[in-house]
Every structure is written in C-alpha cells, then in structure tokens.
Amino acid sequence: MGAISAVGMSGLAGCLGDESVTWMIPWSEGGGTDQYARQMQPLVEEELDGSIEIDNREGAGSMIGSEWLLNQDADGSVFGTVNPAGWTFTWRADPSLDWEPSEFEPIAYSGIFGYTIIVNNDYGIENFDELRDGYEDGDISGFAYQGSGSDSHLVTLLLEEEYGLNYDNAVPYDGGGPVQEAVLGDEVGAGIATNTSAAEAVDSGEASAIVNLMDVDLMDTFPGIDRISNYGDSLGWLTEFYQVQVAPPGTDEDTRQEIADAIEYAVEHEDTQEWMDETGNIVEFGNMDEAAERYNEAAIEEMEENVEEAVGGFDVFLDQTEEED
C-alpha cells in the first residue's frame, strides 16, 4: 500500500467530479519527486477547488507505481509524476515489462532536477578526489544508489569504471529519501541523491553535497560544490530529469488540461517561486506537448544511443547488474 497524504478540502472543479484526485508518486516520501509534489499540492488543490491525495508507491526504480497508474480508471481521478529520462531508462532496462511509456497520456511538466553525491559529515570529505581517496584507503564504506537496474545504478557503475570511484560495496535503495536516511545514519558513507533531497540532508547538518552529477549549475544551492565534469565526460543525459505529470491511457484531453492548468498555477505561484529561490530547485512549466516530448519514441532512441556509447548497450548493462546480484 502507498503512503497517502491529504489536505482537507472538499469538491473538485469541472469535469473531475466530486471525489478527491490521487497524485501518485512512484518514489518514497522525502525524495525529490515527492518534495516537488508536496510543495505544489495545496496550490493545485486551490486551483481545482478540491482535494489532492499524494500516494507514494515506491519500488523497482519507479516501475511499481508506474504500472499501478497504467491500470487505473481513465476518469481524471488519478494522475502521477514520472521522471524521464530516468523513468524511460529504467523501463527500457526491465525486459519483463509488457507496456510502453507512450501508453500514458501527457499532462504537463513542472520542474527539472537531478543527481548529486552526498556524504556523511563524519568523514570530512569535501570533493570527488577526496571521496575516491577515502574509498581507496578504506576510510569510508558503502555507496548508495536508487534502485537495481535504474539510471542511478548505471551512474554508479560509470563512476567506478570511468571516474575511478572504487567503492567497496554498492547498495540499492528505493529513492532519494531512503538514500538520504542511509547516509545520515551512516549505513553507507556516501550515495546518490537528488539535489532536492541533498538540500534537506545538508540542512540537517549531518551530510554534505560534494559532487554535482548534472550539467545544471547548483552553485547557488551548494556553494563550492565539485562537478563530475571536472573528471570526465558529462553525465547530464543520465542524471537530469523532468517532473512530468501523466494520466492513465484513455484519459480525455479536457480532463488533462484542467489538471495542467492547475499545475501551471502552482508552478507560477509566488509561494512556489519563493521555494525555488530558497532551495535552488528548478521549477518550470511545460505544456502537454512539451511533456510528451520527454518520453516519446525519439527520446527513448536518443537514450538508447547514449547507453550504447557509454557501456555498449542495455544488454551489457543488464549483464553487469546480473553479475552484481
């Protein structure tokens, strides 16, 4: 069962009916996708004049929640957030799935975020060089990533193979929230977290964001943060994601447009803009067509080409993950 949070408002506008709407997040509470949704939740409710329930359905690198959403009624009572290109990467890496991302109906996108490396402050590590030395010398143990077979799993492999990060043990967790908790609790010394959950970890005073894995500049959020591009090729194609809202197959355009209008209202609201300024999270609205472009066939083909260039293709990546298991 997912973890559900609701704000007590009644009634919904227009074609959405009298029941509350469920906003499915395929990651755990506390991760980047969840934090974006919870920031915008009351504003979306305000515009819809109704109740939004956030339903966290984590697991399998967002595939459990995505498959659940795929099978819901197309009546406007439920929508979700997915994070291409990471979402489409994880889908492509799981040959057991019998559905296509294109089956989902696009609504909008509401922001851009991505990966950083966070480290427990007890180790006194401030940059990527020091992290590499820490693992090499045995001074730090364990490296966390977000789901076996996921985009962050490939990032973890690339950090070892191409960037010399010789961690002793790589450990999968279900999302940025659990990675953050694992690093703060020193279950692992360091790990991959979204910049959103990394900011929360830094605010705790118990961890630091030491490496920006994206191309997006995070200096305003994490002054002095190191960049992985200082040590090799850009990983932006694999580490930057869009907050894309989608609906079950067959959800009509008018219903989706009503939700899109509410998301646009939330994105542009002064409360969200202040949150963006305070946290460094990138909030941006994209319409239905722009959302669809993030997970259409051309986007998936581009991602496949990048994986081919990076490790020799998805078959090679899957073989590597099987060897780890």
Rank of each mutant, 00 (worst) to 15 (best):
L43K: 02
V307W: 07
E206H: 10
R227F: 08
M219R: 11
Q243F: 13
D271H: 06
I25T: 15
E161D: 15
V311I: 15
G114N: 03
P249E: 13
N166M: 05
G80A: 03
I52D: 05
N83V: 09
E136N: 08
Y145S: 09
A190R: 09
Y109G: 03
D252F: 00
G147T: 00
N127K: 09
Q146K: 12
E268L: 10
E162H: 13
G17P: 09
E293V: 06
T196P: 00
G61Y: 04
A201T: 03
M276K: 10
G76M: 01
R132L: 04
L184M: 11
D94F: 04
D186I: 10
A292R: 15
V316G: 07
A262I: 03
I225D: 08
N71D: 10
R294N: 10
G313C: 11
D98P: 02
G286K: 07
Y135W: 02
N83K: 04
G232C: 05
E46C: 00
T279M: 03
Y173M: 12
G147L: 04
N287A: 05
Y231F: 13
A298L: 05
W23P: 00
A93L: 03
S20A: 12
L48G: 06
G149W: 03
D133F: 01
S229C: 04
G114H: 01
M9N: 11
E187H: 10
G250A: 03
I64W: 08
S204I: 03
S51G: 02
F314I: 04
R38F: 00
I282E: 14
L218Q: 10
D261H: 11
P178L: 03
L213C: 10
E268G: 01
G312V: 12
Q146D: 09
L131I: 02
V267W: 11
A108L: 09
N166R: 07
S66F: 01
W23E: 07
E130N: 01
Q39C: 13
F143V: 02
